[in-house]
C-alpha cells in the first residue's frame, strides 16, 4: 500500500518556485531518502507531505486519502523538524507526556521513562539544559512512544554521535515494518545505510 503519494506538486514562496512538478510515492515497508544541496526544497517537500504547507498545484495523498481529508489519521503521522521542537521550560518527560496526551494516545505507567532510558536520556532535566544531540535523542523517544505509520524526518542524523546514529537506524528499521519513512539528509553515507531508495533533488 502506498502511504505517501505526491503527484505533480508545485510550490512557490513569493515568486520563486521551490518545487516544480514533483511526483513521489513511498510504500509501506519502504524508507526513501531525499538528497540534494541546501535550498533545493527538501524541507518544503517534507512539509507538503506532512500537510503543513499547501502546494499551489498538484495532489498529496496520505494513507490512500487526499491529504486535506485526513483527520483521525494524523495520529499515525509524525513529522520531526530540524532543529527538534520542544518546550524548553518543560522537562523531557513532560514534553513526551504532553505529546502523547495531545495525540490522544494513552500514557502508560513508566512507559515514558523507559523510552527515555532506551535512548540514553535520564529523566528530570528541563529541555533548555539539553544539548542538540540530546534533543535528537528525545525525538527518538517520541518516535518510540508514538509508533507512527508515516514518519517524516528532516536531517535526523545531525548532532547525533555514533551510538545515537545506530539507535536511529534501528528505530527507522522498526517503523519501516508496516510503515513508511521519508527523510531529508545531506549525508550520503547515512542515506545509503538507511534508505531503500534515494531521490536526488536538483535546483
Amino acid at each position: 500500500m502506498t502511504l505517501i503519494e505526491l503527484e505533480n506538486v508545485w510550490k512557490r514562496y513569493g515568486r520563486e518556485w521551490v518545487l516544480r512538478d514533483i511526483s513521489l510515492s513511498v510504500d509501506a515497508g519502504e524508507v526513501v531518502a531525499l538528497l540534494g544541496p541546501n535550498g533545493v526544497g527538501k524541507t518544503t517537500l517534507l512539509r507538503v507531505a506532512a500537510t503543513l504547507t499547501r502546494p499551489q498545484k498538484g495532489t498529496v495523498r496520505l494513507f490512500g486519502k487526499p491529504a486535506r481529508r485526513i483527520d483521525a489519521e494524523r495520529g499515525e503521522l509524525l513529522y520531526l523538524a530540524n532543529p527538534p521542537a520542544f518546550y524548553r521550560h518543560l522537562s523531557g518527560e513532560e514534553n513526551l507526556q504532553s505529546s502523547l496526551q495531545l495525540m490522544g494516545k494513552p500514557v502508560l505507567d513508566g512507559e515514558i521513562e523507559a523510552a527515555m532510558r532506551a535512548v540514553g536520556l535520564a529523566p528530570g532535566k528541563p529541555v533548555s539544559a539539553y544539548s542538540s544531540g540530546m534533543k535528537k535523542r528525545l525525538t527518538m523517544a517520541r518516535i518510540r512512544l508514538l509508533k507512527p505509520k508515516v514518519l517524516l524526518l528532516d536531517e535526523p542524523e545531525t548532532a547525533l554521535d555514533a551510538e545515537g546514529r545506530e539507535m536511529l537506524l534501528a528505530l527507522i528499521d522498526e517503523v519501516k515494518r508496516g510503515g513508511a519513512v521519508l527523510l531529508a539528509t545531506h549525508d550520503r553515507e547515512f542515506a545509503r545505510a538507511v534508505a531503500d531508495r534515494e531521490v536526488v533533488m536538483r535546483p
Binding site: A50, A81, A85
Partner: peptide
C-alpha cells in the same frame, strides 16, 4: 508565543481530529 518561541506550532497542527 509559546508555540512560536519553541517551534512547536507544527506539532499542534498535526494532532488528530478537528
Amino acid at each position: 508565543a509559546v508555540e512560536v518561541e519553541n517551534g512547536t506550532l507544527d506539532d499542534l497542527l498535526l494532532t488528530p481530529g478537528s
